[in-house]
């Protein structure tokens, strides 16, 4: 067991965005998090990565309680993330974007630049490495963000809709990349809508609806679960 959340709850004023969510993620897994828009997936991820402090509940990482730690501390403990809307340092070169994470990610490297370049090659970043991030397209930024997340020596990687916006032809390549990342020893939690992606990579998935977890289990099992169908399609379509 690598990560465990117990009864996590996050409110925004009156709105309960995440309600009593408990999941367990094992080492080496790719764990999917699905649910309709506004279900609270991103908010839940923000709780794990320290951007929000949950009102209730406990989060444990490697047998250590991490509830309420800052993103910086969590990064140093080995949790990395990407953002639903890609973020970069627009006026730094692509290489420097990754180098920041190599230098400050928590592990010393003899040659940060070399390590950053290797990671960029690993994620298939194909543009020139000295180009400003401002001039990259979304696809390149997505790969850059992945490289940056890996650069912090993460053991757990939180991905928020990385496959969104990919064309069908780009998808297999990306699925392959996510698998390779897992094979390099990184456990992954990914929020995803793209079914092909979920079925292609996830070992287990959990479903959120209105902030609450309504199901968890192996992929086929979940996708055939009537309650999940209901959440996605609305009541009347099930029958």
């Amino acid at each position: 067991m690598l990560l465990k959340t117990e009864g996590v709850e996050k409110r925004f004023g009156g709105l309960v965005a995440v309600k009593d969510v408990s999941i367990t993620v094992n080492k080496g897994e790719i764990f999917g998090l699905i649910g309709p828009n506004g279900a609270g997936k991103t908010t839940f991820l923000n709780c794990i990565s320290g951007f929000y402090k949950p009102e209730k509940g406990k989060i444990t990482f490697k047998e250590q309680e991490i509830t309420g730690l800052s993103p910086t501390q969590l990064c140093h403990k080995g949790i990395a993330r990407t953002f639903q809307i890609v973020r970069s340092f627009p006026k730094l070169s692509a290489l420097d974007n990754v180098k920041v994470a190599v230098v400050y990610g928590g592990k010393q490297h003899k040659n940060p630049e070399k390590h950053a370049k290797e990671l960029m090659d690993f994620v298939g970043f194909n543009a020139a490495k000295d180009v400003l991030a401002d001039n990259l397209n979304t696809m390149q930024l997505k790969r850059l963000e992945l490289a940056r997340a890996l650069a912090t020596n993460s053991e757990l990687l939180l991905l928020d809709e990385v496959a969104a916006g990919l064309t069908p032809s780009e998808l297999p390549d990306f699925i392959d990349l996510i698998r390779r990342i897992r094979d390099s020893g990184v456990t992954i939690i990914c929020i995803e809508h793209v079914m092909k992606f979920i079925m292609g990579v996830c070992d287990r998935i959990a479903v959120l609806n209105f902030g609450a977890k309504i199901a968890e289990g192996a992929v086929e099992e979940i996708l055939n679960n009537p309650e999940v169908m209901k959440a996605y399609l609305g009541e009347e379509n099930v029958h």
């Binding site: 993330r81 973020r87 970069s88 340092f89 006026k91 940056r148 650069a151």
Partner: peptide
């Protein structure tokens, strides 16, 4: 230097910088 890298990262996207381990 690396210090400048941290400055730039914080100035351009503080949240992303924090996920990279930079102490704001």
């Amino acid at each position: 230097s690396n210090l400048g890298l941290a400055f730039s990262a914080l100035g351009q996207d503080a949240e992303a910088a924090r996920t990279c381990g930079v102490d704001p």
